[in-house]
Structures are given as C-alpha cells and as structure tokens.
Simulated scan of single mutants.
Amino acid sequence: MAPIAQETDHALILSSRVNGTPVFDRAGNRLGHVDDLSIDKVSGRVLYAIMSFGGFLGIGERFHPVPWGLLDYAPGHGGFVVPLDRNILKDAPNYDAVELRNLGGPSFRSYSDIIFGYYGAPPW
C-alpha cells in the first residue's frame, strides 16, 4: 500500500480540514479562522469562506462571508492569506448564526451583491 499523501502534497482538501484553518493578513497577522464554507448547490463552486473573528466562546461572534477567490493558501503560514486587514473586516458585511443561514435563501441575490460589492470581488 502506498503511503498517504500529506495535505501539502496535493491540490484537493476536504472541507472538514478547511474549517478552523487560520486566516492571516499579508503582514502575517492572524485575523481569525474559516468557520465554514458556502457552496453553490448547482455549480458546486465555493462562493464564500465563512470567516469568524471576534466574540468570546461563541458569544457575540459575527461571521464574515469572504469571497473564496480572495483567499490564498500559504503553506508557510499553515493557513490562508487575504488582501484584507482587520479594519476592512470590521466594517465588512457580517451576520450572526441565524442570519447566516438565510444567505442562501430567497434574498440570496441581494446578499451576494452586498458581499461581493463590498470586497470589489467579481461574483462567482
């Protein structure tokens, strides 16, 4: 039996391994972590990394959907690097756990326009 490849040896990763992965700004400051992924059911594409920062033990925690295309995996950091800083995220669209569940609902287009528009990222 061949040895199991290490995570850095291949291009694919399980979503369960993405959850909890740290997110850093370009200066190497830790901003938070990936809490979840938002995946389009039809295309199968990841739209957002649901980033968590702030709160204490889940109290007051806000979730920031960050367009997936803004995250670059940086093996040296053991996490993702984004072209954002804490001030940009502080003012970014964010949601509590209940609001987050509505992101893919009937108001999906308006949420999507707000999120992609804020970051200036192309949708999809």
Score class of each variant (00 low, 15 high):
residue 25 D to T: 05
residue 109 R to Y: 13
residue 110 S to Q: 14
residue 36 D to M: 04
residue 94 N to K: 02
residue 72 D to P: 04
residue 109 R to G: 10
residue 46 V to Y: 04
residue 99 E to A: 11
residue 8 T to F: 15
residue 5 A to C: 11
residue 69 G to D: 10
residue 81 V to P: 06
residue 27 A to Y: 07
residue 87 N to I: 07
residue 2 A to T: 12
residue 71 L to S: 05
residue 18 V to L: 11
residue 16 S to Y: 14
residue 23 V to T: 04
residue 124 W to K: 14
residue 19 N to F: 08
residue 122 P to F: 04
residue 74 A to S: 14
residue 34 V to H: 01
residue 58 G to R: 08
residue 106 P to Q: 14
residue 111 Y to C: 03
residue 121 A to I: 01
residue 31 L to H: 03
residue 102 N to E: 15
residue 42 V to Q: 13
residue 24 F to W: 06
residue 24 F to D: 00
residue 107 S to F: 12
residue 19 N to M: 13
residue 67 P to A: 04
residue 68 W to S: 06
residue 3 P to N: 08
residue 13 I to K: 10
residue 26 R to Y: 06
residue 51 M to S: 05
residue 118 Y to M: 04
residue 14 L to F: 12
residue 111 Y to W: 07
residue 78 G to A: 03
residue 77 H to I: 06
residue 48 Y to M: 04
residue 69 G to R: 10
residue 67 P to M: 02
residue 61 E to Q: 13
residue 115 I to S: 03
residue 27 A to Q: 13
residue 118 Y to T: 02
residue 120 G to T: 02
residue 69 G to W: 03
residue 96 D to L: 00
residue 40 D to A: 09
residue 118 Y to S: 06
residue 32 G to D: 03
residue 29 N to Q: 14
residue 117 G to I: 01
residue 103 L to F: 05
residue 74 A to H: 09
residue 7 E to D: 12
residue 48 Y to W: 10
residue 2 A to Q: 14
residue 54 G to H: 00
residue 38 S to W: 10
residue 49 A to W: 08
residue 23 V to I: 11
residue 107 S to E: 14
residue 28 G to K: 09
residue 85 D to W: 06
residue 4 I to W: 11
residue 67 P to F: 01
residue 63 F to V: 03
residue 93 P to W: 04
residue 57 L to Y: 09
residue 51 M to H: 07
residue 10 H to G: 13
residue 61 E to H: 07
residue 43 S to T: 11
residue 111 Y to V: 01
residue 112 S to K: 09
residue 24 F to G: 02
residue 54 G to T: 00
residue 33 H to Q: 12
residue 95 Y to S: 01
residue 91 D to E: 14
residue 87 N to S: 15
residue 61 E to G: 08
residue 120 G to I: 02
residue 39 I to P: 01
residue 70 L to R: 02
residue 93 P to T: 01
residue 87 N to H: 13
residue 105 G to C: 06
residue 40 D to I: 04
residue 32 G to R: 02
residue 42 V to R: 12
residue 95 Y to Q: 03
residue 85 D to S: 06
residue 50 I to C: 00
residue 45 R to S: 09
residue 88 I to G: 06
residue 113 D to R: 12
residue 116 F to P: 08
residue 94 N to D: 09
residue 111 Y to T: 01
residue 59 I to C: 08
residue 69 G to Y: 04
residue 32 G to N: 04
residue 56 F to D: 12
residue 63 F to A: 01
residue 22 P to E: 02
residue 40 D to V: 08
residue 110 S to R: 13
residue 74 A to L: 07
residue 65 P to K: 00
residue 98 V to C: 03
residue 110 S to W: 09
residue 24 F to L: 07
residue 40 D to E: 12
residue 35 D to A: 10
residue 83 P to V: 05
residue 5 A to M: 13
residue 26 R to W: 05
residue 16 S to I: 13
residue 8 T to K: 15
residue 101 R to T: 12
residue 59 I to H: 10
residue 38 S to E: 12
residue 97 A to L: 11
residue 99 E to D: 10
residue 83 P to H: 05
residue 74 A to P: 06
residue 107 S to A: 15
residue 3 P to Q: 09
residue 80 F to L: 05
residue 89 L to H: 01
residue 57 L to P: 07
residue 49 A to T: 07
residue 71 L to F: 10
residue 94 N to H: 09
residue 41 K to Q: 15
residue 124 W to F: 15
residue 27 A to F: 08
residue 60 G to K: 00
